[in-house]
Write a protein that binds this DNA or RNA. Structure first.
Lengths: 150, 150
DNA sequence: AAAATTTGAATTGTACACAATTTAATTTTG
DNA sequence: CAAAATTAAATTGTGTACAATTCAAATTTT
């Protein structure tokens, strides 16, 4: 009574999804020790990147940028607030919205973070051009799969 | 008193890491409704892929394949067991090891899962060749960043 | 304007991830 | 061989993700 072997298209190593999932976690793992001196987790670092770019966004706007909902962002932002990096306050124009503002410490942290991307690029042993190409292809994947598409 | 703008290399859209992180979550999001009828989460599906390929692995071996530790796998496997898809038992040769075996139901589920990769490939609107190329480049990233490297 | 709907955050509950510790079972070593 | 070191899972604790619900504040309808 022989059991059929797994068809090729179900092999783990054949999966595009797994290469993506594994690579994403591997990259996060490399960031961890780099971010530890700044007292940030990787998702917190992403939120700070957005705020350094444009301060005073609402939770909703931050969520659109990072593709995260309030269930993820609210506790994350509370931790950033507890760490003294941001302030959270209701907008006067619309009390439903919560505006996130960098504190002086939050803004100052940008200088320390400034070294990180180069650090990462070096660890990847990849040309800048190839990295940009791969990045843009991944953006295309996200765009293609985003719910608005199709 | 003008504040310096964020340098280009700190812009969110410039980050390779974010494109990876966003794409990975987008892909998982597409799997969710496909896996729901099978009663699997995405990481559970990955564990099943490994077991369909080679049954009777230990938690450690499964962890090596998926790059996950027992802190993640133990509860995940308990849920698969609760769903009646796998059995967990200590090895007699070495009582420290826990062997994971597919149940009949677990093996049978492979037939339903068989349609999923093609479903996914179609959603990506990408040639098979391009998907494989991207997949292999991502594997290279993971390999490059794995702790054994350097 | 009052009622119904919509919207933005927060909350609740489930399921990962992963560091750090614990426990039990083997191996290695003195 | 017995103590020490190592190993495999499990456990504990923190921090995401995300669906679903709740709540309060706008907005739209009637």
């Amino acid at each position: 009574m022989k059991r059929k072997p797994t068809p090729d298209h179900l092999l783990l190593d054949a999966q595009f999804c797994f290469s993506l999932y594994a690579a994403s976690r591997a990259v996060t793992g490399v960031y961890r020790p780099l971010l530890e001196p700044l007292g940030l987790t990787y998702p917190q670092y992403l939120a700070m990147l957005v705020l350094w770019e444009k301060d005073g966004l609402t939770v909703r706007e931050l969520g659109q940028r990072l593709q995260l909902d309030s269930g993820t962002l609210t506790p994350l932002l509370k931790r950033l607030q507890a760490a003294g990096l941001v302030d959270r306050r209701r907008r006067v124009e619309d009390e439903r919205e919560v505006e996130i503002r960098l504190t002086d410490a939050g803004l100052a942290l940008r200088e320390q973070a400034s070294e990180i991307p180069a650090c990462m690029a070096q660890r990847l042993h990849m040309s800048l051009g190839h990295m940009q190409k791969l990045r843009d292809e991944l953006k295309q994947v996200t765009l293609q799969l985003s719910p608005t598409e199709d």
